[in-house]
Design a protein around this nucleic acid. Structure first.
Lengths: 111, 111
DNA sequence: TTTTTTCGTAAGCCATGACTAACAGTAAGT
DNA sequence: ACTTACTGTTAGTCATGGCTTACGAAAAAA
């Protein structure tokens, strides 16, 4: 078997745990891009980006296709789906515990 | 200022990126527990658990309260809220890109 | 076919961080 | 007051993994 179709939540978290990798992934949110193009706006070398993309691909977070000598990467919904599934399940399971507390407004983020 | 009320998504991912920490966090899903009790069912020492709990606390993923000589930890909705916010925003942003693909059933997880 | 572009991979270095052991502190029990 | 139970912290070790450099491969261009 060549492909790993199922995206494991453990891999998703581990892979997205690295800041640089998260940065690459979020930049792919702007649209499909080549490896070199991604490396241009990042503080690491092109091979580093390539290695990160491999990890993202193995986790089912991105897919890639050839386009001439270039290789275009784009976001794969599978990985995000696994994350969403895990979070939703965890969320409803915890709702019993901190019912009212959830509604208390106070949750941030950072993009 | 002593408290860091805002849960940053970068911290949430980084902290949850460690397998052992994720394991501790998921076991807290069964309900509030003491440090020693958590350490019993884990392959690491108690101090290790204590250190992980600190990281989880700093990321806004858990809260703790004293109970006699014991210290009870439980899940804090703030961290999960930050994660949910990030995911939801990312999700809708990407909907334009892979519209139909999202509906194709095929998303796994691992608990 | 030879050169150019673009990329993946291997080898090796080095920093981050996860872990254990030892110690210190606080609360409850006697 | 002394002992016991439970935990946080520090120091120091060691493995994981992220990064760069160098190399090789494939496709397009000349």
């Amino acid at each position: 078997m060549a492909y790993e179709k199922t995206a494991r939540i453990s891999d998703v978290f581990t892979v997205l745990g690295d800041p640089t990798r998260r940065q690459i992934f979020e930049r792919l949110g702007d649209g499909p891009q080549s490896v070199g193009n991604l490396a241009l706006n990042l503080p690491v070398s092109r091979p580093a980006v390539s290695q990160h993309l491999r990890a993202l691909k193995d986790a089912g977070l991105v897919t890639d296709r050839a386009e001439g000598t270039k290789r275009i990467y784009q976001i794969d919904p599978h990985g995000l789906g696994a994350l969403r599934g895990w979070l939703d399940r965890f969320w409803v399971d915890q709702l019993d515990a901190f019912k009212a507390e959830v509604e208390k407004p106070d949750q941030d983020s950072e993009a």
